[in-house]
Design a protein around this nucleic acid. Structure first.
Lengths: 209, 209
DNA sequence: TGAGAAAACGAACGATCGTGCTATTATTTC
DNA sequence: GAAATAATAGCACGATCGTTCGTTTTCTCA
């Protein structure tokens, strides 16, 4: 049975999560969240043992949502390239789903130079996600969709880079063509992954002085 | 002649800029900057008419530095691909130059949902920079280094995406291979730009339900 | 329905925020 | 070197921060 306390805690976290997407984890304020859910500061605070605890719970809630919205439905798609396409589609939808875009990207830039439990949790969640992406690429290789010599970690890197750029162009620059550019970049990445090793073996020439 | 006030203002901005790279523009605090440069809060504040003014000046100072460190030296390189390589090299160096990485990326994620003059200035600086990148690509096309049908704006998008991913992997995940991954991605982008239109014309198939 | 537990509130705390003032130093200029 | 000016410091303000605590309301279940 679901108690009253758990219910309001869920409401608080939902609200705080949306606020985090626009204000960031550091931008979160007990007072502002309380105002938003129409509770007293102390009434809200009673559900958490500290502000950091609230932030950690917001992060955990976001991970749950992400898993449910992006990963889980993609696993119902056929292995290999179709599943990867589904991951990307869901990922882009996740970006759009919240008022301020992806919570993790927002948090990443605040926490990248702030050691602590908050940062550690975020890093580990990000590593998990990147592993999932690389794993999905490995499956695509096994299925014969991608080239056998594909560097799957590099694939994950470049896939992530596309989403990061989408976030940047869409949210900061408000570029209406951002989504199309992301898809173009993705298509090009997939194309290149089908016949790997082309550019990858070229050495990077330094710009001469 | 350079007056005392201008000199300390320069010191303040230098310091505030470094702090911004790790704490962000919103994380900046009159008190913390004052403590860092060992001045009184009010003594420091006298140089600016408001906190927002300080932030704006930090942003302007960062743009100046970026121009001096990244763009200017690249213009001394031969037109076309060599210049683009120089831009990327300098850009990566700029990332490393400050304690917390690129100021603009840090600011971008804080400001993307906060309308105001601060945001407007950042956006316009970013647009300028993207135009420069696309322009550099256009020159490379004219020089025959890149394919005639290259989408230069798309090139700028994907080049930016590589740096964004570098920032993410290097600063948040502390991935020691981040720089190498960025270079690999860049090499692959250049390779693909030499013979464009391959993947770009493929349609992006939706993941079927 | 009434006793006991859970949940929400109100008020207050010390600290720090951005921002004014007024005084006190440094620096420039004649 | 004195007068004028610029630069810095000290202090105080209202507001808000995270947090504590005692009280009151609301819920739960015998």
């Amino acid at each position: 049975m679901v108690t009253k306390g758990e219910e309001t805690r869920r409401i608080i976290l939902d609200c705080a999560m949306a606020m985090t997407s626009t204000l960031g984890l550091e931008g979160l304020t007990i007072g502002s969240v309380a105002r938003e859910v129409e509770m007293s500061k102390s009434g809200l605070f009673a559900h958490f043992e500290s502000k950091q605890d609230l932030q950690l719970q917001v992060l955990a809630a976001a991970v749950d949502r992400f898993t449910g919205m992006v990963i889980a439905p993609a696993l119902r798609q056929p292995r290999g390239e179709p599943r990867i396409r589904a991951l990307v589609e869901n990922w882009l939808a996740w970006e759009e789903w919240m008022p301020g875009g992806c919570v993790f990207i927002a948090a990443a830039n605040e926490l990248d130079d702030r050691p602590g439990e908050l940062r550690d949790r975020l890093v580990s969640a990000q590593r998990d996600w990147l592993d999932s992406l690389a794993h999905a690429a490995r499956i695509a290789v096994r299925e014969g969709h991608f080239a056998a010599d594909l560097d799957c970690e590099q694939f994950a890197y470049q896939l992530y880079s596309i989403i990061l750029a989408y976030h940047h162009f869409h949210r900061l620059l408000r570029d209406p063509g951002a989504r199309e550019r992301a898809r173009t970049a993705f298509t090009s990445l997939v194309e290149q992954s089908r016949s790997a090793d082309t550019a990858r073996t070229l050495s990077f020439r330094e710009a001469s002085p």
